[in-house]
Design a protein around this nucleic acid. Structure first.
Lengths: 242, 242
DNA sequence: ACGACGCTTCAACGGCGGTTGAAGCGTCGC
DNA sequence: GCGACGCTTCAACCGCCGTTGAAGCGTCGT
């Protein structure tokens, strides 16, 4: 019993409706105010505050105070990875409303998984990188021969990434797609690049993403991706923002 | 809220002292009787039974009945991976007793992580495979040029593994060592081989492993591993069984 | 400086869930 | 077949934790 890791208290920490909603909301990797978190979790300010305090004490989130706002974020990559691993096991909550169904589909289409792309878009970009020889997913995950070249086309330089101690590539099994997508330093860099170039924009108050017209064009040129043709893409309304 | 995965109920399921102990006990990947699980969790038979029922309903464990015994095991790899991811985040329970300290050290030294090696032994074997060019951990995880040859030396054939749909290589960050070790189909095959050749033996009632004299000799010959010289190995008593 | 606002703290309530012990049920050994 | 055994089920108790509403505290606008 003793000397083991304390799974029980960690599980209990995640095992509350409100706290789980807070963690999922924070899974976009951003810093979020307490009030926005309250809204996202559908809970009162006081309740949210007490739950955030417990998440803080449990080391799952960190906080930086900025003026009269307190910005919460996930405590680190391990927390995000843990949440992803849990989502892979957790059953889906039944969809009750039309709103819920729409937001579920949007989330499935494109979202941030802490710092990299996930959803249909995430797996498609990964597939595209594989096709173009930038990434190899045969045995495990490795950089392909054309990695420098392909990533360079969108202005990504591998050198600074290699310098960091963080693992370059990591596979992350997508919760909705049940297929691997690209994570690690390279996955994060690709996501950052796409946000910076406004190929995708964050959907306010969610970890969901919208692909812009620029993004659709850019992805087709860069990786030969035709978003419209992807499984699970057209299920929803237009899908292009901006 | 709706359309998300139900993290909360999953967390709550893990978030109980007894259930967490049961899951950790099952993390050796084996099938275990209800009574042994009760003993491991330090709970009464009836209590254990009710908890196992909930784990069953939650899809975390599966059961096969054999005579008057019921054999429980983890429901799948995803569950094991989730538990590993959680252990990486969970704090360690404070060690209270001498017994606890000894078992903790033994666990740290060598154990099964569902189907592959973990602990000091797990990372050391992984390092050895990297050194010998069977595995590359530079960017992600991939087979090295000498994979066939090196694995062949202990009678492992990659062909049947490739045929399976399961990913060949996966990195699994070790909870105690905080470093990657080898998982995936290859990691599982290596562990199975070592158990079959009696290089290591399961410690009864635990996921801990003991290295035999044969194993120590074999590992030195195969990978040039000198167990005695490993960090964290000699902290404990002899360490050789059989 | 004043009030509005963002957020936290506190005390009190209510209910879910863990725990127990005894009874029930099927399986194995003699 | 009988009893021992492995395991599960049930009813009842009890404690903890999530929830609420109001009060407190620091920060920002004017």
């Amino acid at each position: 019993m003793t000397g083991e890791s304390d799974l029980a208290s960690l599980g209990a920490l995640v095992g509350d409706r409100v706290r789980a909603a807070l963690l999922l909301r924070l899974l976009d990797g951003g810093a979020t105010t307490a009030s926005e978190l309250a809204a996202a979790a559908g809970a009162s300010a006081s309740l949210t505050s007490s739950h955030l305090r417990r998440l803080l004490e449990g080391g799952l989130v960190s906080v930086t105070t900025s003026g009269r706002h307190r910005l919460y974020r996930l405590a680190g990559v391990e927390v995000a990875e843990m949440l992803e691993a849990m989502q892979l096991v957790a059953p889906e909550t039944p969809v009750t409303s039309l709103r819920g169904e729409r937001s579920r589909r949007r989330l499935r289409r494109a979202r941030l998984c802490y710092d990299h792309l996930a959803g249909v878009l995430g797996t498609a970009v990964t597939d595209g990188l594989v096709t173009r020889g930038a990434v190899v997913l045969a045995d495990g995950a490795a950089l392909g021969e054309r990695a420098e070249e392909v990533l360079g086309e969108v202005g990504l330089d591998l050198a600074p990434l290699r310098a960091r101690e963080r693992r370059l590539l990591r596979e992350c099994t997508d919760w909705t797609e049940r297929r691997p997508h690209l994570a690690g330093a390279v996955g994060a860099a690709v996501a950052t690049r796409m946000i910076d170039s406004a190929w995708v924009v964050r959907r306010p108050g969610s970890r969901g993403l919208d692909v812009t017209a620029d993004g659709a064009a850019g992805l087709e040129e860069w990786l030969g991706l035709r978003l419209r043709d992807l499984d699970g893409w057209r299920e929803t309304a237009p899908g292009l923002a901006g």
